[in-house]
Amino acid sequence: MIRVRDLRVRYREGGRPVDAVRGVSFDVAPGECFGLVGESGSGKSTVLRALVGLASDWSGTMSVEGEPLGKSRSPRFHRRVQMVFQDPYGSLHPRHTVDQALSEPLLVHGLGRERDRRVVQGLADVGLEESFRFRYPHQLSGGQRQRVAIARALMLDPVLLLLDEPTSALDVSVQAEILNLLHRLRRERGLTLLLVGHNLAVVAHMARRLAVMQAGEIVETLTTAQLRAGTPTHPYTRCLLDAARISRRRG
């Protein structure tokens, strides 16, 4: 589904070029949930942004569904690949109602005729009642906003969903709900997921396979079975696992 080879991404910060991603390669099979774990500044989110075309200065090869990606993305790409952002407060337009937010992708792709049916269906799919349809983001809780953001990403029936820390801004109880929702959607729709996160426990809960990133490079790729068996080899992975374990054990 996704094939990334030797991806390098560079952006400018205060005039100085910064190499955010330095030669990353990985594959994601159709229907799989693949995780990218790392701390802030490890370049994990930059990989997602490069994939969807939000970072322009990159080199290497990337392909989605066998189609190599160039500098711009086609309308077809937008219908097949969607993204959910970390901060549900920032990813919804403050002056658009839920109805507008969900209708926009349809209108852009000339599907305005099906608007009413698909918006109601989209809300139902993410477990929101129809009464939410005409609310503004400020009238919603964090978890509800993230559900709306997920619904918006699903409006065009994508096959690949990129998740950029989708639960890190949410409370624990809400996080569980969103993770369950993503689980269900993946099962029902056969979605391929690429999940980025800093919390090893969250990523390992969702993904079968994950890659650990540090300073723009993948230091280790392993399955969650290997993780559970306690065989990560890289010291950094061990460090992350220990941190996750300690907090769990003591709890």
């Binding site: 337009h93 002056r95 852009v108």
Partner: peptide, 26 residues
Amino acid sequence: RSDFIAAARLYGASTPRLVVRHVMPL
């Protein structure tokens, strides 16, 4: 640079649409 503009780009909103429907109201 906000995420909702990025999201609009991701579902393929054209620049004029971005300006009129997303940026101008703000």
